[in-house]
Each structure stands twice: as C-alpha cells, then as structure tokens.
C-alpha cells in the first residue's frame, strides 16, 4: 500500500519528467538546425582541406621557380660581366694604339720644330708648312678621345659594381624559399593529421629541395647610401675602442 508521501514523490518525478520533455521540445529544433549546419559545413571544410592541400602541393613548384630565377640571374650577370670585361680589354687595346699615335705625334712635332728652324719666318715655305702643321694639330681631339675613353672605362666599372644587386637579391630569394619550405612543412603536417589519403598522397609526393648547408641573410638589401657603411664604421670604431679600453684595464688591474 503506497503512502501519500510516496505518491507526492511520484508526482514530483513526473513533473521533473514533464520539464525534461518540455526542454527536449525546445532543444530538438536547435539540434536539428545544428545537424543541418554540420551537413552544410562539412563539404566546406573538405573543400578548405583540398584547397590547403592544393596550395601546399604547389609550394615546391614555387620554391623551384625561385631557385631557377636565382640561377638565371646569376647566369645573366656572368654574361654581362663577360661583356664588361671584353669592353675593358678592348679599351686597353685602343689605349695602346692611342699611345702609339701620341708617340708618333710627338716625333712629328719634333720634326716640324726642326723644319721651322731651317726656314725663314717670312718665307712662303714657312707659311705653307705652318698651315699644314695647324691642320695636322689634333691635340684637342686627342684630349677629347682620351677623356671619352676614361668615361667608358669608369662607366663599365660602375656597371660591374651595380651587379652586386644579383648577390643581394639571391639572398633575399633564398630567404623566401626558406620561408616557403617552413610553411610547406607546417601545412603538410596539418593536412597529414587529417585522415585523407588522397590529399596526403598529393602532398607527400612533392618535396622542396633545400640545400641543408645554405646560408643567407634574410635582411639583405640593395642600399647604396653611404649611411649604411657609416653606421657599420661607427659600430666597428666603438667596439675597437671598447676592446682597447678592456686591454688597458686588464694591464692596470
């Protein structure tokens, strides 16, 4: 026989159950919309995975192309340097010829001088030879040619110095390749964590070929301003002063 207390407890439990059902009625639509959301989002996540995998698999190609650019610019720079050397060598040859011309000119001047000494200044012969001498005087032109040759030589040397840009950009490109390799590694491991055989294969098949012993300056820049070397000089002077002071201090300690 049930007591009134027991009945009261049963009613309480029934009320709790009713609350649970009411809560269930409210939560079911939310769960349904969550399922619907998941249904929509899963293909999207798969698409993101595939995109990451595609991008990751493209990275070795990008790194390879950067390495090709470095090789191509080094080759082109070498060709330019060869041409500049050729021009410089030709200039040396031209300068040699020019010196011979000047030597002949000097001998010619001596002969003219001797000839003038043998002639009367008022004679027709003197005037005629002097006219020929004036026409034959190319000293101004020789000076012009000499200064033009010097300018060509200076300019070719400036071209040579400007080609330092190749080494600097090569280091910048090496830094980019290194960065791509790091991002590739991270993404590959991320995608590999997701159990997706097709994507895994796509990525693990391709590797970035990186020289383990490569060394580069990621901050390399083509800055021709004098301030940069001046800053370096100040640091060098400062450090050398410090070092000398330390040596002096050691002597007196």
């Amino acid at each position: 026989m049930q007591t009134p207390t027991n009945m009261s407890q049963i009613f309480d439990k029934l009320n709790d159950l009713k609350d649970i059902f009411r809560f269930g009625e409210r939560i079911v639509p939310i769960i349904q919309s969550l399922i619907s959301f998941m249904r929509d989002v899963v293909p999207l996540l798969e698409s993101i995975n595939t995109s990451i995998a595609d991008s990751t698999s493209q990275m070795p190609k990008a790194a390879n192309q950067i390495n090709n650019v470095t090789s191509a610019t080094e080759l082109a720079t070498t060709e330019i340097l060869d041409l500049v050397d050729d021009i410089s060598n030709e200039l040396v040859v031209v300068d040699g010829i020019f010196q011979k011309i000047l030597e002949k000119r000097s001998k010619k001047d001596e002969l003219y001088k001797k000839l003038f000494e043998t002639l009367n200044k008022d004679s027709e012969e003197y005037k005629l030879i002097n006219e020929i001498y004036q026409l034959d005087d190319h000293n101004g032109i020789f000076d012009d040619i000499k200064s033009k040759m010097q300018k060509i030589n200076d300019d070719t040397y400036k071209i040579t110095l400007s080609l330092q840009v190749q080494d600097i950009t090569a280091q910048q490109l090496a830094a980019v390749t290194h960065l791509i390799e790091q991002v590739h590694g991270k993404l590959a491991s991320l995608v590999n964590d997701i159990e997706h055989a097709e994507i895994k294969d796509k990525i693990t098949d391709k590797h970035i070929v990186i020289d383990e012993h490569v060394s580069f300056d990621p901050n390399a820049r083509y800055d021709k301003s004098e301030e940069r070397q001046q800053t370096v000089d100040n640091i060098v002077d400062d450090q050398k002063r410090k070092a000398s002071q330390e040596e002096i201090d050691k002597l007196f300690s």
């Binding site: 110095l161 330092q164 840009v165 600097i168 070397q229 640091i235 450090q239």
Partner: peptide, 28 residues
C-alpha cells in the same frame, strides 16, 4: 664583406677578430 649590417652581426664578427667590416653593396 657582407650584406649583414645589423649591430649584433658586426659585433659577432669583431669578436671573431675580423680586422674590418664592409657592407654590400660596397664602393671601390
């Protein structure tokens, strides 16, 4: 003769006892 122009690098080179330091691009 290097592209590295930051103070830490220069100090490191001097501590290794290079006699002097030129930053690229250099002039003759």
């Amino acid at each position: 003769v290097t592209t590295r122009g930051v103070k830490e690098d220069i100090v490191q080179a001097l501590q290794a006892r290079v006699n002097n330091y030129v930053v690229k691009p250099f002039t003759p």
